[in-house]
Design a protein around this nucleic acid. Structure first.
Lengths: 338, 338
DNA sequence: AACGTAACCGCAATCGATTGCGAAACATAT
DNA sequence: ATATGTTTCGCAATCGATTGCGGTTACGTT
């Protein structure tokens, strides 16, 4: 009902000036013990809370960071945000969250909103539509540190926290090889996306390092539950079908698994499957799905830490690319090492 | 690098007063055409953006709403937040997100942060530890509208957007009965939580209405993937084990399903299972999981709409309880009706 | 008695934008 | 030439909190 208590209200009630109240509240030596007590007592009674907005204006510090993600409803992104929020909380920062819904136009508006609200830094994972980064780089030009996570622009000198897709794909493929698979297929992401290219490259390199010839007909672009069905059927109808599938993400892996089961092909005995972490539902398939854990929470933590560091001490020189370690989560959809 | 452009910068550069700049920017009739053009041109050139913080202070309107959830990393909660964000975006509001991590103490601090930051309203789903709501109700007493969603205090006159847990549980249980199950167990949430109580009550009522006796040993408090394992084993080791399980959420349902499979008990033939909340991973289990869809996104939308309405026109009289429709999503883990 | 000096506290400016009111400058009317 | 009107703009206060600087007491010292 009533508007919030201000320092003036206390001053008026005690018949002293606002400055005295302010000083009393922060235990300034200029203020007498009695005055301090009176002020603090009344402040407590009225439940005075400093107006963060006024402080922000005065100090040019909002204690708020902004986050833009393509979509909130993704296990991975919500994990990242959770990590961000925990770090921010510990550091006394608030988190303003926006989703671009994979739209370039909305990402721009989100960026401007964060700018207008004078967030002290921004954490961004770009939308699928975004190929121009001017709106974001503009933030940094204006003194708002910017850290990309997961989906970051390639070939740009910006701060980013990402996973080593190449290495992770290499490890996943190697695991298939080491558990006895020799005909390894890859359900790939579009080769326009950085992750698509990197994961493909890691896959190829693993084959090469283990003396396995790369076969083009074992690689199909398919990166969703739906697309995985057709792709898998096509693979299994080849003269020499694969005995393992490395899928570019978990939904694709599950799509392949479901399809194989419908074809009565045993997983992992006939065909092993490994995915790439989009979520913890790898636990709940039958068989459970081996996968590459992307450590979303940790990525959020590291990205937030880096951002806070940039806020404290702005970049000198080159920006940093930080890799989050991935690791193989070995479950039932791949065979055991012997 | 340089601090953001202010209205004064433009005024100084054009040798006019700040008031004139302000008026020129908003097309006030008092300002001449030439002045307006000069101001607008320079503003565009310098990419002037009004300082939202200063405006907030002046207008006592931050255009920001706060959200507190127990945990971000939940399909349901992230769905709700997504709905909230979309509504807020359309209305020109920003969203400040906090997670309590199921801790009462942290919920309090979150609340104070939102208060200090003068959010114009708050959307809250309470933590498991929260039994006292003073900190939240205090917001509303201070003119910050408050809308609870999903986890709301019972028996309190507050605005809330929830599902009809009682009805949904009744329907889920009834479906099990109608598909021939007669010994229906319930893996329940803590009976301190409203949802726990309501879902339990709906379960009981369904049994009663169909002439099935309630048995205490078929009800176990277990609301996570991990807890479901032990609970399910215990259930199946009873002299008369159940032939169906109604689980309080999907993760619990999946935990039960996995355990049954490990015990070589056929789902749904020997034991049918129905979950709650229809996370999209209900699709990928084998068998796929029947569940109650909670419509998280829609709940977020409705809660945000209600909050914005409260912000526009504060409550007169009693608060509102709004129910989001649920519906049964029938998949393979329950039997078909005949 | 006169002066010095702590001890305490208030004035006013500041952060950026807005806005009521008043004031120039010029034009038109009487 | 005086009065009235119109156009265009600036002053200053405001939002809430902070802080340098100056001012007022009261007390002690010589």
């Amino acid at each position: 009902m009533s508007s919030p208590i201000t320092i003036k209200d206390i001053a008026k009630a005690l018949n002293i000036s606002a400055s005295t109240v302010s000083r009393a509240l922060k235990d300034h030596p200029d203020i007498s013990r009695e005055t301090k007590k009176a002020v603090n007592d009344l402040a407590a009674k009225l439940r005075y809370k400093p107006n963060a907005v006024a402080l922000s204006l005065k100090n040019s510090r909002t204690n708020t960071i902004g986050v833009i993600v393509p979509e909130l409803v993704h296990f991975f992104f919500s994990s990242v945000i959770s990590g961000i929020e925990d770090v921010a909380y510990d550091a006394g920062y608030n988190v303003m969250v926006c989703q671009s819904n994979e739209m370039y136009s909305r990402e721009i508006i989100n960026t401007q909103a964060l700018d207008s609200n004078r967030v002290e830094g921004a954490l961004v994972s770009i939308s699928k539509e975004t190929h121009d980064f001017a709106h974001l780089l503009y933030l940094e030009e204006n003194g708002i540190p910017l850290v990309f996570f997961d989906r970051a622009p390639e070939e740009l000198d910006v701060d980013k926290v990402i996973i080593d897709d190449y290495k992770a794909a290499y490890n996943a493929t190697t695991h298939l090889i080491e558990t006895g698979c020799k005909r390894i297929a890859h359900l790939a992401a579009p080769q326009t996306l950085g992750i698509g290219i990197q994961r493909m490259a890691g896959y190829k390199k693993a084959l090469e390092d283990h003396g396995i010839t790369y076969r083009e007909d074992w690689v199909i672009e398919a990166d969703s539950f739906e697309l995985a069905g057709d792709a898998t059927r096509n693979l299994m109808h080849l003269p020499t079908p694969p005995d393992a599938i490395f899928a570019v993400n978990d939904m694709t892996a599950v799509g392949a698994m479901k399809t194989l089961q419908r074809m009565s092909i045993a997983v992992p005995q006939k065909v092993a499957i490994i995915g790439f972490s989009a979520g913890f539902f790898s636990d709940i398939t039958t068989p459970t799905l081996s996968s590459v854990d992307q450590h979303g929470y940790e990525m959020g933590v590291e990205a937030a830490k880096l951002l806070l560091q940039r806020i404290e001490t702005p970049v000198e020189g080159k920006h940093k690319t930080q890799y989050i370690d991935t690791h193989l989560v070995l479950r039932e959809s791949t065979k055991r090492k012997n």
